[in-house]
C-alpha cells in the first residue's frame, strides 16, 4: 500500500536537549527512556555525586501494559497520500522526547520521574499548620 508522505513547509525548534531527537524522515523502531530525580531544597545547597536510581522503586517497578485481547484486522486507505502542515513552532524538546516528521513502525517511550522536596526544620510552637 502507498505510504503517506509528510510535507512541512516550515518548522522552528528553539532547543532539543537531554537525549531528545528531531527526526526528519522515516524510522523503523524507537525506544526512548527517561529517568529523572527532581530535587528541590529550601536552601541553595547541592551535594556532588548524590542520587541513586536503585534506591527508589519508582525507577524499577513494572508499568503494567494491557495488550489487545482481540485480533484486529486493520487496513488503511490513503486516498490523499500527503500529510500537509504549513508551520510548526516548538519552544523546546527535552528528556528523551522526539519530534518526528515522517513515518515509523514501532514506538515505545517511557518516563520515570521522582520529585523530592527537602525543607528546613520548622518551629512547631507557632501553631502553624504543617504542609
Amino acid at each position: 500500500m502507498l505510504q503517506r508522505i509528510t510535507c512541512v513547509d516550515h518548522i522552528k525548534i528553539d532547543s532539543v536537549s537531554f537525549s531528545s531527537i528531531f527526526q526528519i524522515g522515516d524510522s523503523e523502531q524507537i525506544l526512548a527512556v527517561s529517568r529523572a530525580l527532581a530535587v528541590q531544597r529550601e536552601a541553595e545547597i547541592f551535594f556532588d555525586n548524590e542520587g541513586n536510581f536503585d534506591a527508589f522503586p519508582v525507577f524499577s517497578e513494572a508499568i503494567p501494559f494491557q495488550p489487545p485481547d482481540e485480533e484486529i484486522i486493520f487496513s488503511t486507505h490513503n486516498l490523499n497520500p500527503v500529510l500537509k502542515v504549513r508551520n510548526i513552532d516548538i519552544l523546546g524538546a527535552s528528556s528523551s522526547s522526539i519530534v518526528h516528521l515522517g513515518n515509523s513502525r514501532n514506538i515505545a517511550m517511557e518516563a520515570r520521574v521522582k520529585h523530592i522536596r527537602q525543607l528546613l526544620p520548622r518551629n512547631n510552637n507557632s501553631g502553624e499548620e504543617g504542609i
Binding site: 501494559f65 524538546a93 522526547s97 514506538i107 520515570r112
Partner: peptide, 22 residues
C-alpha cells in the same frame, strides 16, 4: 514543550506505546 519521553509526530506509525510513572 515536548518533554519526558513525549512524542510529537507528523506521520503514521504502526504501534505507539507510552508509559510514565511519577
Amino acid at each position: 514543550g515536548v518533554s519526558s519521553s513525549s512524542l510529537l509526530m507528523v506521520g503514521d506509525a504502526e504501534t505507539i506505546q507510552l508509559a510514565a510513572t511519577f
